[in-house]
Design a protein around this nucleic acid. Sequence first.
RNA 1: UGGGCUGUCGCCAAGCGGUAAGGCACUGGAUUUUGAUUCCAGCAUACCUAGGUUCGAAUCCUAGCAGCCCAGCCA
Length: 563
Amino acid sequence: MSTTENTVSSNFIRHIIAADLAANKHGGKVATRFPPEPNGYLHIGHAKSICLNFTLAAENQGGCNLRFDDTNPEKESVEYMEAIERDVAWLGFTWAGLYHASDYFDKLYEYAVELIKLGLAYVDSSTPEQMRADRGTLTEPGKASADRGRSIEENLALFERMRSGEFADGEYVLRAKIDMASPNINMRDPTIYRIRKVPHPNPRVGDKWCVYPMYDYTHCLSDAFEGITHSICTLEFEDHRPLYDWVLEKLRHKLEQDFPWTWLPQQIEFARLQLEYTIVSKRKLLQLVKENIVRGWDDPRLPTISGLRRAGFTPEAIRDFCERIGVTKKDAWIEMAVLENCIREDLNERALRAMAVLRPLKLVIENWPEDASETYQLANHPQKPALGERAVTFAREIFIEQDDFEEHPPKDFKRLIPGGEVRLRGSYVIKCEQVIKDEAGNVVELRGSYDPATLGKNPEGRKVKGVIHWVAAAHSVAAEVRLYDRLFAHPQPDTLDNFLDGLNPDSLEVLTDCRLEASLALASPETRYQFERVGYFCVDAVDSRPEALVFNRTVTLRDGWTR
RNA sequence: UGGGCUGUCGCCAAGCGGUAAGGCACUGGAUUUUGAUUCCAGCAUACCUAGGUUCGAAUCCUAGCAGCCCAGCCA
């Protein structure tokens, strides 16, 4: 009956969960987790996973954990962990529990010992080179290492010595004993523990360990420890699912002993987000930051959560985007227009309007008295009176946008031309009487007149089509405005041999001579506005100061007029 | 050519044997003191291809074709 319900699109994971619930598979429970490795900042691709995991749990009265997948201390740091927590919270989600895979190291070790006792894991002294050679190829089976037949007792002793620090990095590894001839390379006796004599960033771990478990071994068990029902990850882990299930199945008896109330989790894979004209790879993002190609992880040109936030995106827009793009197993490239539409739609509703002249051109209203001024109360939002009004003052000398005057206008140009009339937004209709140029022929100033009969009403006997924004010179404040454009000129920089070749050389233009209407003088950091006829802007959270305002362009307004 | 996965409008995406939802983009037109917003209209006889089963197939079967992922002591 309702015509306003937002049609939440179905997806294959929702189907799976519905079926599991119907079959009472996990005692009617749904528990998920978002498991980032703290080796970089979160980006829009993570947002897709975050939204998926948290909403799936919430839709089914379940919880979603935030779990740091911190099993590789060489790449991870607390700085990243803190940034991740901040970003997930900013997106609007509350985790049921906050965990670290590293907090499971004791248990994980104990389970590894169990695997050895079961004859399902062995300590191998092969070098990385030897292991690679023994692994075989995509079409040929692998060969067994000489250590594969080591006795359980010997494996137990060696693993204990690995743990106690007797061996150097790389001297030994612990491997699962599965099948060197498996067509699935992940099953050819994967390494599950390696020696790394480095401290761990988790303060509760510190330098306690010098052997660290690998992802495949750690992840499935961590899921089981936490009672996760649906372990959602991206497509590249599809080939790892048999290993995920193998570990759980072999250790099932121990899990059932330690967690008698729980169940074995199931891994479900979906396609990761691919967004045109940008990059969502932590490695490449890190490179852009390290090489100073951008100004940090929160550079507004980056698709990081912190970059989007600084650019002026709202959590609501990002969540809306994640819902709209859907969840499937198909490699898909999302057009940037979808993201842009989401933020425009949100900001159109909530951003207060204001006038800002980005590239000022002086216009003197010659029939307006020297020292007179007039103040209007203009609506903060044309469709929402409830959002109030602000005062805007008009005077003899004003600034208009350079783009809004054309000496030789193209066809259908609706703005100001020599001898032509245009409406000043919220004020009078004015006419351009004279164009003043410098020696080089550049237009440096305009002289004009206003029609006193046009305030709040249309002139009689003629139509004035154009409306332009303006600011009174003496009633405006200076500001720096940063115009951001897509970071890459190439739609799929990821597919290039060197993704840096796809960079857009004009991704940032800094305008230092902008004039804003006076009401903006008090704008506080992170406040978002629509500069009428120009776009949505946000006060920069890092560099803006009351006496030196800095605005970032979030996105332009749609422009149906093709220049 | 080993294994795993995918193929519905320009880009996403519903659909699960009963005769192609929706969003973005695009194109018209209306309203508008933002060339914005809003509104209204249009936009796949067609679902990778070819066969087959069926009264009926995007949905089932068979054979192809195309694309993506995997040989870290990364995740």
